[in-house]
Design a protein around this nucleic acid. Sequence first.
RNA 1: GGCCCGUUGGAGAAGCGGCUUAACUCACCAGCCUUUCACGCUGGCAUUCACGGGUUCGAAUCCCGUACGGGUCACCA
Length: 479
Amino acid sequence: MKPRVRYAPSPTGHLHIGNARTALFNYLFAKRHAGTFIVRIEDTDLARNVESGIASQMAHLRWLGIEPDESIDHGGAYGPYRQLERLTLYATYAEQLLKQGHAYKCYCTSEELEAEREALKAAGDDKLHYSRKCLHAPAQDAPYAIRFKVPENTTWTFDDMVKGTVTFQSDDIGDWVMVKQNGIPTYNFACAIDDHLMAITHVLRGEDHITNTPKQMMVFEALGWTPPVYGHMTLIVNEQGKKLSKRDGAILQFIEQYKDLGYLPEALFNFIALLGWSPPIEAEIFTQDALIEHFDARRLSTSPARFDRAKLTYINQQHIKLLDSEALKTVCHPFLQTAGLLEGKDDAFVDSVIDVFRDRLTYGAEIVSLYHDFFDENLVLSAESREFLRSVEDVRPLLATFADKLTELDETPTPDAYKNLIKETGKICGMKGKNLFMPIRIAASGSMHGPDLPKMMHLLGIETLKQRFAHILQDDLSF
RNA sequence: GGCCCGUUGGAGAAGCGGCUUAACUCACCAGCCUUUCACGCUGGCAUUCACGGGUUCGAAUCCCGUACGGGUCACCA
């Protein structure tokens, strides 16, 4: 049987990295087994819905390369794919459960419930379950919620795809609300109904849903249905080992933020796939197709996945290396453009900028800071550079010679022209290797680290170079 | 507090009872390459798997307990 899996976001905002990961693993699972990947919008919390949230989520899913087979945008035989459009369906089943005695109307107000919980807490009760005081309440002409009547002395056991056998007892679950006073179903109810109606075979979701599972299973049982296979993936945690909180500013958590910084979608896809899952082969740079080919749900990790930004950086850099120059140009161009670095520059200039930096670029937007680091007007010698200059004998004559030679060049020397110049300078001064290149590099860029020297000089332009050499030669001998 | 889950080097993370004197990757260090820088390549980097018991001829791997960490206990999803 071909699996049918779903990603069921609530449209409360942008695509979060944790949600993206849920979507991604479901997608991988579906594609790996030639199944169907469905996106269902769970918008039953009216207060938290953000209308633009749906479009944003769908757009970023697509940007990541995750294309649903069935969704509000793609249609399908199991629609509608938005819960608010399925209200009559839920009402039908709620009615049935009510009739069969699996559910009952609850007339308690939120104040009463709150007071009840407070009392339990004060009494030292640690379960804080609903008292069931409305279980036999006569019908009233008042607003009501519908509660699921949790069967007594029952054990729910399921074979979790990642955790193994997991068990819950009736005693640990209070009668929960399945339809709110406003007539809209709660998550656990709507989710169970839809998973059945949409013929979902496997549910891969975050571990934070594990305690919801028995609630959903009891709906399936009451209605005589067979629940899907569940799999609960470990949470993604931050440096402190805490669940990623959307309010945590220390980590960029939304796909959009990475997109805006010029991260590559295929790299992000690769990185996220490694969050709580490990490939069966010794590699870690994967294309989406390779990931689909190697995906195996049995390799989903049981311990929390640490969000490691350094790893992301590395993976992105590796994917950048895979790009041909045209593709890399497409990535970098907008950033150079917005930074105003392209004013009066031609295409060849863009090509050289990218060529010079491609080896050390870790994400698109970085091209701008790399550029500034090395080509800023006010260059400042790093401490390391000064120290090096002091350690080399006869630095000054060397730099003077080079500066002198510079005046002999034409207006737009090629990288090779600079290379020859360095060579000649070395010959004249009797210097070579590091002692030759490094002082020139420092004079030109202020730093001991940077792109290939001749290429860099070419980019910098002869006028800037002349200024910089003049500047450093004016400097005190001690630098 | 109840219930559920986890704990391997500076970091991520393999490992599923003997092939492990613990893979791979990042970071770091050293060397090579490059007349510089970077990329790349090669090598180094846990006598040890939170701790304490137990099972076994044999345990990071199984069992129990302790500690620590996390998740969840809503008319949120």
